[in-house]
């Protein structure tokens, strides 16, 4: 694999020789990759290729699976996130995550967004919290739609709104990286378009990694694309290069729809 022509001057996260095992089964084999600070990075590949698994090891969500084991080195700003000194609670606050299916808590819209700030103690008082909630909802493009009904339950929103609420919830903790695990797979095309628009707007404020099985989406929203297959990273490069001029035969086959 060649990374010569990749220009990631300032990597936010970098992985080196990462293997992930579920019990006996190896889900990820020797993956090394850099994630740029101001970029949207897309992970693509056929289902079961390990892209989501790898994403979940970037904020140690694999810790919640008893049989999962991660080896190799993953750094955030040069710090090993699997080092004993790394605090997983802080790590996840700095590396936020948005899931495949919208998962708002059965609380009010306000409480959903305020949840992270409250547990991390980011707001000194109610006024601060109001500011944080409003800013997060504004950034997630939801403020205008919900500002009059902040006390309604988050689960009462539409699917697309719920997913933007979950993005707002992640933003409210002021993370440095946002991981998105197929965030549009449960949404209709209009809601998907809104989320993609949102990703455009968030670019530059956060390092964003998005897993998607939708190649057009990857082409639309990302600047860097990594193609995973059978647990290995086959090719990583500028999105335009991957889609117009893939170096690997397997990437080409996938892009052109031979399998997947």
């Amino acid at each position: 694999m060649t990374q010569d022509d990749l220009i990631i001057a300032d990597p936010k996260m970098r992985a080196e020789g990462v293997d992930v095992f579920y019990g006996e089964k190896q889900a990820i084999k020797d993956v090394s990759i850099d994630v740029g600070t101001d970029l949207v990075t897309a992970f693509i590949g056929p289902s079961g290729c390990g892209k989501s698994t790898f994403l979940r090891s970037l904020n140690r969500m694999n810790d919640t699976v008893a049989s999962a084991r991660v080896t190799g080195r993953i750094e955030l700003d040069g710090e090993d996130i699997y080092a004993p000194s790394m605090d997983v609670v802080q790590l996840r606050a700095r590396v936020g995550m948005v899931f495949q299916k919208p998962n708002p808590f059965p609380k009010s819209i306000y409480d959903n967004v305020a949840y992270g700030s409250r547990i991390h103690g980011l707001a000194a008082n109610k006024a601060d919290l109001d500011v944080i909630v409003e800013r997060a909802l504004t950034r997630a493009g939801l403020w205008d739609e919900v500002k009059d009904r902040l006390n309604e339950s988050g689960t009462a929103l539409s699917g697309g709104q719920q997913q933007r609420l979950c993005i707002a919830r992640a933003i409210a903790v002021d993370p440095e990286v946002i991981l998105m695990d197929e965030p549009c797979s449960a949404l209709d095309p209009i809601a998907t378009a809104k989320i993609e628009e949102l990703i455009h707007e968030l670019r530059g404020k956060y390092a964003i990694v998005i897993v998607t099985h939708n190649m057009q989406q990857a082409a639309r929203v990302s600047q860097r694309t990594a193609f995973f297959h059978l647990g290995t990273l086959v090719e990583y490069g500028k999105t335009t290069d991957i889609f117009t001029n893939p170096k690997q035969e397997r990437t080409k086959d996938y892009i052109t729809g031979r399998y997947g």
Binding site: V89, F99, Y115, G116
Partner: peptide, 26 residues
């Protein structure tokens, strides 16, 4: 749903905060 628990943990909540503030209310 497991997603509820994941959502809370991914925000950096400790298991105890997740249980008390998300799982039990749910």
């Amino acid at each position: 749903p497991q997603a509820m628990r994941d959502g809370s943990l991914a925000l950096g909540a400790t298991p105890n905060e997740t249980i008390r503030q998300v799982l039990i209310p749910a």
